[in-house]
Design a protein around this nucleic acid. Structure first.
Length: 288
DNA sequence: TTCCAGGGGTAGA
DNA sequence: TCTACCCATGGA
């Protein structure tokens, strides 16, 4: 058990429900505790358990526990994973300053929204994003659930499969097992390239958004929507992830119910500069 | 049966 | 750069 400092502008519930990842393994949320089946670098599989201190959602500490073959020397690795998962180290001050100046987004500051739930690896976030393209959310979850069975087993369930495990399968087997449809070849090709591309380094602040965009869209199956979505999880918000959800949100809040063109979306959100993508996502998350 | 979903690749202009 | 067409899957 360890305690992690979150800072004052952190809301556990807001991060948990910042998008759909919480609905898919290896995440699980029971309403109080976020758990995640986590594979350590040496292959051991543990379950990480995170909950805010007390029963409120705005405490400044998180309680982090782990089950399974855990050693005291794992605490740093676990803390790093949790910081990554909950975007603990994101500084939201500039974002909130912008929204205060712009007006109309008081709920974002009240909810301490803006941080996004992420996997501990770029690989997992990119694979899941690929499986959101041109399909329903229900099918995305089904594909991810089937994909999970290709990862190593543990008493807590499967760990998310590693790139080499996906790459080791032949494309036909992978596609049939996941029922990934035409995405199967993209998934397999990505798995084969992931290590050489050193994608885990893409989390680094040292790589600019434009370079990351070019690297991501160079991969088959990752277009503008997917790249912007992945960049958002990498804390780069200067691109709009335009999909049916974004169009529906814009139609509801800004366009009298009419589906906007991409040009309309760009015209509206460009004023938010480096934060435009996250502002759009706040409109998606906004409730009545 | 047809449409389409948290889109993207490709050929042809 | 822009458009038309194609892509597996499965719920509505």
């Amino acid at each position: 058990m360890q305690r992690l400092l979150t800072g004052p502008d952190f809301n556990f519930e807001a991060v948990i429900h910042s998008h759909g990842w919480v609905q898919m393994p290896p995440f699980h949320y029971d309403g109080q505790r976020l758990t995640r089946v986590h594979q350590l670098p040496d292959g051991r599989i543990i379950r990480i358990i995170v909950q805010p201190t007390g029963n409120t959602s705005r405490e400044s500490f998180l309680l982090v526990d782990a089950e399974g073959p855990v050693f005291p020397t794992d605490s740093a690795e676990i803390a790093t994973a949790v910081e990554r998962i909950l975007a603990l180290r994101w500084d939201m001050a500039a974002f909130y300053d912008l929204l205060r100046a712009e007006g109309g987004y008081d709920w974002v500051m009240e909810a301490r929204a803006g941080r996004l739930l992420r996997a501990p690896t770029v690989w997992e976030d990119m694979v899941k994003t690929l499986l959101t393209t041109n399909t329903t959310w229900m099918q995305t979850k089904a594909m991810v659930n089937r994909l999970m069975t290709l990862g190593d087993e543990s008493p807590f369930g499967h760990a998310f499969p590693r790139p080499e495990q996906i790459a080791a399968l032949d494309v036909e087997t992978l596609t049939a097992h996941v029922k990934a449809g035409y995405r199967g070849v993209y998934l397999h090709a990505f798995a084969q390239q992931a290590a050489d591309l050193n994608i885990e380094r893409w989390i680094s602040d040292e790589i600019d958004s434009e370079t990351l965009y070019k690297n991501i869209t160079a991969l088959k199956g990752f277009g503008d929507y997917a790249a912007a979505s992945i960049l958002r999880l990498l804390n780069h918000h200067d691109r709009l992830s335009i999909d049916t959800v974004a169009r529906a949100a814009f139609a509801q809040w800004h366009n009298n119910g009419e589906t906007p063109t991409d040009a309309q979306l760009h015209a509206h959100y460009d004023r938010y500069g480096a934060w435009r993508g996250l502002v759009l996502w706040m409109d998606v998350l906004r409730e009545g």
